[in-house]
Amino acid sequence: MTTEALARPMARPLRRISERSGLNTAAGHVLMVLLSIFCLFPVYWMLASSFRPANAMFETSLWPTTMSLDNYTQAVDAIPIARMLFNTLVFSALSTVFQLLTGILAAFAFARWKFPFDKLVYTAVALTWLVPFQVVMIPNYLLVAQMGLLDNIIALILPNLAAALAILLLAQAMRGFPKEVMEAARMDGARNWRILWEVLVPNLRGTIASLAILIFISTWNEYFWPLLLSRTAENSVVQIGIQMFMTAEGNQWGPLMAASTLASLPVLLIYIVLQRQVVQSFMKSGIR
């Protein structure tokens, strides 16, 4: 090998950074568009079907050829949907508030204090997360039945007052919060209560917001527990109402899609209004 050959750079194609990143971006966009279509199509189909008249229900055209609000009228007439939506809202909102409240307090204790068997207790809390709902369903049912709370919205909320997910997620977020800031607050004269509500909570807004949305949506979609407890349509939630359109005689797809659209609206509204905050908070708290 000559010294000239050594001095020469290795022969390999030199690509410009902009070209390469441009290609990557385009490929990424195509993939994201395909995934978005895959996720959004069922929602669109539900919305489109809710406006199709009964005789056009099984049309395969993407856009309804004829539009009608009949399905909505039928849904409203068949079930007390407004009352059910209100019940669902109360159930979801109170469950969210209580789970956050108990979660914040418990997480603070786990994150900030050392107490006997703290790790054991924390592990026990984590393990409750792994216990399937079906295991605790019967004991919970018997408990609320003995309390005389069957067919009552309070009975729906009671087992949802605290949840392991909220405690674990918040404890983790609190452990990640700079210890020095809490110590600075302590030096400034703040006691634990003040440190929690005036220093920690305002700085964990992202985690709390994403957790609140997770709890709200999962409670909103809850079906089996309300099904067990509900005796009357007036004290039931909207998911039970939707199920009422699925009968042994056949499914009433039109009203079912209309009721489903109505049931999805509050969650969609929350998402549209809080879109930026939701995405930011999920990104910040690492929930994707």
Partner: peptide, 13 residues
């Protein structure tokens, strides 16, 4: 006593 911390420990909010 008042303390000044290494990483400032200001309240971010």
């Amino acid at each position: 006593c008042a303390m000044v911390f290494q990483n400032y420990a200001l309240y971010p909010h």
